[in-house]
Structure formats: C-alpha cells, structure tokens
C-alpha cells in the first residue's frame, strides 16, 4: 500500500464517520439551529467524499449549492422565524412514530439492497479523467440530456413562482389600523391591486 492509498483510506474513514455523526446530530439535536448547522457539516463531509472519488466539480458544486445556498436559506428561515412553540401532545402519537419508523426502515432496507446489488466500479483500472468538467458536459448533452432539460424547466418554474410571490404587494397596517368596523380576516393579507407593467 502506497502513501497515497493510505491517506485515501484514512480520509474516507474520517469523512464517513463525519457524515454519520453529523447526520445523527441533525436528527437528534433538540435545538433546531444546531440541527441546521450539523446539516451543513453533513454536506461538507459529502463534498469531501466526492473529492476522494475524483469528482472535484461535483464536490465544489455540492459545497456551492447545498452549503452556500440551501443550508444558508434553512438557517435564514430558522433565524427569521425564531418562535418558541410548545406543542400540545397529540393523542395516539405512537401510530405516527411507528409509521415513520416503518417508512425509515423500509427505505434503509431498499437502499441496502440497492447497495449490495449494484455492480460498483465497472472498471476499477480507469484512471482519473483530465477534466471532469468536460466529461460532465459531454454527459449532460448526450445521454443525460432529458433529465438536464427537465431540471432546467423545473428551476425556471420555481423562479417564476418565486417572482410571482415576491411581486405581490400586501397592504399591512392600513386596514388593520381601522378601529371598530369589521376586522380584516386574519389568515389573509389584503393585496394592493397591481398596475400593469409598461
């Protein structure tokens, strides 16, 4: 075993331990902020695993998208809605817990079977490609064209939806300021009529 192989093995083990530990942290922490931060740890550790597999572009994309965008947005949501809520105990909660456990166990079983049945490392002798970017680009525009385009359409839809929601101007304070009369419905924000864009 050469030095490089040894380093790779040790880092794989460390990263795997980090992924599992951080993932457990996400689930087990009572404080939701801790969960969000450990989620960031999970993402970064997975990015490290990608690097070990010579997938440097995927790894950087993982950091950029999951850590830099998704996790930050989750944290944003948590910190802006910093509301302590006391949940009233739900009757027959054990049914929910049991069903959740069943689903999780099923998923775990499914993934295990998938792991065991997949033929990993189709050609182990294959050396690292010169540029993963070019390789990914070729795949995107040949055999993975359909998923790629579908994903772009999905993102476009999300974008349009976000713009529609963000453009809505709700009137806060004007209606609620009227004392007496009829109070504005609680769960609905009155909207200002929009002027058509030129």
């Amino acid at each position: 075993m050469t030095l490089a192989d040894g380093v790779q093995l040790v880092s794989t083990l460390i990263l795997a331990a980090m992924v599992i530990g951080a993932a457990l942290g996400v689930v087990l922490f009572d404080n939701i902020v801790y969960s969000a931060f450990t989620l960031g740890g999970v993402f970064i550790s997975i990015a490290g695993l990608y690097i070990l597999m010579n997938a440097d572009f995927v790894s950087a994309a993982q950091v950029l998208i999951y850590v830099g965008a998704v996790n930050v947005l989750i944290l944003f949501a948590i910190m802006l809605v910093n509301k302590q809520e006391v949940y009233s105990p739900v009757p027959r909660r054990w049914i929910r817990k049991l069903s959740a456990a069943l689903v999780s166990a099923g998923l775990f079983g499914l993934l295990t079977v998938m792991l065991l049945q997949t033929e990993w490392l189709p050609n182990a002798a294959q050396t690292a490609p010169d540029s993963t970017v070019i390789l990914i680009g070729e795949h995107f525009f040949s055999d993975y064209l359909l998923p790629f385009e579908l994903a772009s359409i999905l993102l476009l839809m999300a974008l349009v939806g976000a713009v529609v929601i963000a453009r809505r101007e709700s009137i806060v304070g004007e209606d609620t300021a009227i004392v007496g009369e009829q109070p504005a419905p609680v769960l609905e924000l009155p909207e200002r009529p929009r002027e058509p864009v030129a």
Partner: peptide, 25 residues
C-alpha cells in the same frame, strides 16, 4: 493547478455566510 480552479473559489466563498450566521446567532 486544479481543473475546477476558479470555481473552487466561488464554492469556498459561499461557506463564509454559514460562519457569519453562526457568529451572529
């Protein structure tokens, strides 16, 4: 001389907000 060079910088600089949020919180 990484193949993803400049992209690595963009990816890494996106980690900083997590630290800032952490410090702020």
């Amino acid at each position: 001389d990484l193949g993803i060079g400049i992209f690595l910088w963009i990816a890494l600089s996106s980690i900083a907000p997590i630290g800032l949020l952490m410090a702020g919180y």
